[in-house]
């Protein structure tokens, strides 16, 4: 089992009242598709996941501070609030056949492959901290507030140890991007 630390930018889009129908087209113009709540979608330049109704998190390659959010603010003016979480959430990637079993040592969700297959996303709490989980073909992506990232990382290392643990790696988010055009 391998735990990787992921470098990425995070931008949240939150729909303003009455504009839910307008946002998908705007998103498409930005090169991403917006999945329904509880799902993660893969675009050529981003992972997009939603764990709250009418809110989406865009995971993109790191850029200059605030640049991603600023571009989306422009696109979404009047339609959605755009919030930069690039420094607010940390991302970890768990790969390996035992990852889901190891997470059951602290996660209350059913992470069995049939219950939480790739493409699914969920917000929950794990090891007493808020987490967002997204199932990707490569493994599980875990987002957690930056201030508790070290705590969660330490806990994950402990939970994963009996299942064998590969050395820590740094992963760029673009390795998860696909080419299925939105």
């Amino acid at each position: 089992m391998a735990i990787g630390v992921c470098r990425l930018d995070l931008t949240e889009l939150a729909v303003l009242r009455g504009h839910a129908a307008d946002l998908p087209a705007v998103a498409r113009s930005g090169g991403v598709a917006l999945p329904p709540t509880g799902r993660v979608a893969v675009s050529a330049s981003a992972l997009v996941l939603s764990v709250r109704p009418e809110r989406w998190l865009l995971l993109t390659s790191p850029a200059a501070a605030g640049a991603g959010a600023a571009a989306w603010s422009e696109r979404c003016a009047g339609l959605a609030a755009v919030i930069d979480h690039s420094s607010g959430l940390a991302a970890l990637h768990l790969a390996g056949p035992s990852a889901r079993e190891a997470l059951a040592r602290g996660c209350r969700l059913d992470l069995a492959m049939d219950a939480f297959p790739p493409g699914h996303a969920a917000a929950t709490s794990m090891a007493q901290v808020a987490t967002i989980l997204a199932a990707l073909p490569s493994g599980l992506l875990i987002l957690t507030p930056a201030s508790t990232a070290r705590h969660l990382h330490e806990w994950l290392m402990g939970a994963a140890r009996p299942f064998g643990l590969a050395p820590l790696a740094e992963i760029t988010v673009s390795t998860f991007f696909g080419h299925n055009d939105p």
């Binding site: 949240e12 009242r17 930069d84 420094s87 607010g88």
Partner: peptide, 13 residues
């Protein structure tokens, strides 16, 4: 009211 509130506590040092 048409208002969105979002926690940004950890984003800003």
């Amino acid at each position: 009211l048409d208002v969105l509130v979002t926690d940004v506590g950890d984003h800003w040092a």
